[in-house]
C-alpha cells in the first residue's frame, strides 16, 4: 500500500506508477491506491440502501446493504482504473457533511456481509443467493473500510 500521512491525520492516496518494463507487474502497479470509507445507510428518498464513498463522493444503490456496497466497490474500482490511465480524471471529492456526520453514529458493517459484497462486486457470488437476512439488520447506518483493487480477481 502506497500512502502518506497528511497533517490532518488522513491517509492520502498516491499514484503508484511502478517501474519501466514491468509487464503484468507494471499493469498492476499502475493502479491508484486509496484507503476509503463507505457509509452505508437506508435512504427513504431513494427507496434503497445507499453506500457512499467518503473520499470520492461516489455512491452505490441497492435493495440490500450488501448490494449497495458491492455496487460502490465496483464503481470506485472503475474510477481509480480510469484515473490511473488519465491524469485529468479528478477522483477525489469529499462526501457532503451529512454523510460524514453519519460516521459518528454508525456500526461497523458485519464482516460476513462485507465478504458477500466483495464477491458480488467481483462477480463471483451465485445469482439468487441471499446476501443477508432482513431481520439481521440491527442498525440503519453502517461503515466499512474500503481498500485498493477491491474488484481485482483473487
Amino acid at each position: 500500500m502506497k500512502s502518506r500521512r497528511s497533517s490532518r491525520g488522513f491517509t492520502k492516496p498516491v499514484r503508484n506508477r511502478g517501474q519501466k518494463g514491468g509487464g503484468a507487474v507494471k499493469e498492476k502497479m499502475s493502479k491508484i491506491s486509496l484507503q476509503d470509507i463507505a457509509v452505508i445507510y437506508f435512504s427513504p428518498a431513494d427507496e434503497s440502501w445507499v453506500a457512499h464513498s467518503v473520499y470520492t463522493d461516489q455512491l452505490g444503490l441497492g435493495l440490500t446493504p450488501t448490494k449497495a456496497l458491492a455496487e460502490l466497490m465496483r464503481l470506485v474500482d472503475k474510477l481509480l482504473a480510469m484515473a490511473s490511465t488519465d491524469d485529468s480524471i479528478e477522483y477525489l471529492r469529499k462526501a457532503p457533511e451529512e454523510v460524514i456526520d453519519r460516521l459518528k453514529k454508525c456500526k461497523p458493517f458485519p464482516l460476513e456481509w462485507f465478504e458477500v459484497a466483495h464477491n458480488i462486486a467481483r462477480g463471483t457470488y451465485p445469482d439468487g443467493s441471499v446476501e443477508e437476512p432482513a431481520d439481521a439488520l440491527d442498525a440503519d447506518t453502517y461503515s466499512a473500510n474500503l481498500g485498493e483493487n477491491l474488484c481485482a480477481a483473487a
Partner: peptide, 20 residues
C-alpha cells in the same frame, strides 16, 4: 470531475434516476 451511476439505478422504474 466524474460521476458514476451504477446499473442498480435501473432497479428504479423505467431508468428513473434516484434522488441520490
Amino acid at each position: 470531475r466524474t460521476v458514476l451511476i451504477g446499473h442498480n439505478y435501473s432497479d428504479h422504474k423505467g431508468e428513473v434516476l434516484a434522488p441520490g
